[in-house]
């Protein structure tokens, strides 16, 4: 016998009934251009964020330009020599 599990769960049913959604208007045919534009416009995760949010990462961000400059200077010196 299949009993409806929600028969005893009136409070939960009331909560679930609060979850209304509005269905937007959209055509049956997809638009490739529209999808591409939406993809470009959609927010994406910042790849640097996990690095700078940690203390070590923040120091790394500060140190990278200095180290980079030093490396370039060494390479230039080697080329001149």
């Amino acid at each position: 016998m299949n009993q409806d599990p929600f028969k005893k769960e009136q409070q939960l049913s009331r909560k679930l009934d609060e979850y209304h959604i509005e269905v937007p208007d959209f055509p049956i045919k997809p638009s490739r251009w529209g999808r591409f534009v939406h993809f470009l416009a959609s927010p994406a995760k910042d790849p640097i964020e996990p690095l700078i949010s940690a203390a070590d990462g923040f120091m790394l961000i500060k140190a990278v330009p200095i180290i980079g400059t030093a490396v370039i200077a060494i390479i230039q010196a080697l080329i001149l020599l």
């Binding site: 609060e18 209304h20 959609s42 927010p43 910042d46 790849p47």
Partner: peptide, 26 residues
Amino acid sequence: RTLLPFLAPAQTEELHHSDKMTIRQA
């Protein structure tokens, strides 16, 4: 998201009444 996280669209959340947020979040 694992390979190139800056290319995959991130999930955005809309602001709703707190009751609806609770059931939606649940």
